[in-house]
């Protein structure tokens, strides 16, 4: 079973990478691009057949290592 964990900076936490990408897109001539936010996608192969157990495990991994809950939030998708 595969879990996809998406980690994003929390709202209100400055994202200088997102800002730089936004500037670069404007330089390339893409108009109308608002705020740009950059995150991480982490794919996990889990030896688990129960989707709920897989989700629980991935959420535990998210809280304990994959995200820093001071600055980031994450969501888990089981695929």
């Amino acid at each position: 079973m595969k879990a996809v964990v998406t980690v994003m900076l929390k709202d209100g936490v400055l994202d200088p990478q997102g800002k730089a990408i936004g500037h670069a897109l404007a330089t390339l001539g893409f108009a109308g691009v608002g705020e740009v936010r950059v995150g991480k996608r982490i794919e996990l192969e889990l030896g688990e057949n129960d989707p709920e157990a897989a989700r629980k495990a991935a959420e535990d991994m998210g809280r304990r290592l994959l995200a820093n809950m001071v600055i980031e939030s994450f969501k888990v998708e089981i695929v």
Binding site: P16, V70, I71
Partner: peptide
């Protein structure tokens, strides 16, 4: 130390990158 929770807060990417 911040990642281990021994001090509060976090260190983000420098504002100017």
């Amino acid at each position: 130390l911040t990642e281990a929770g021994l001090l509060p807060g976090a260190l983000l990417r420098n504002a100017g990158l």
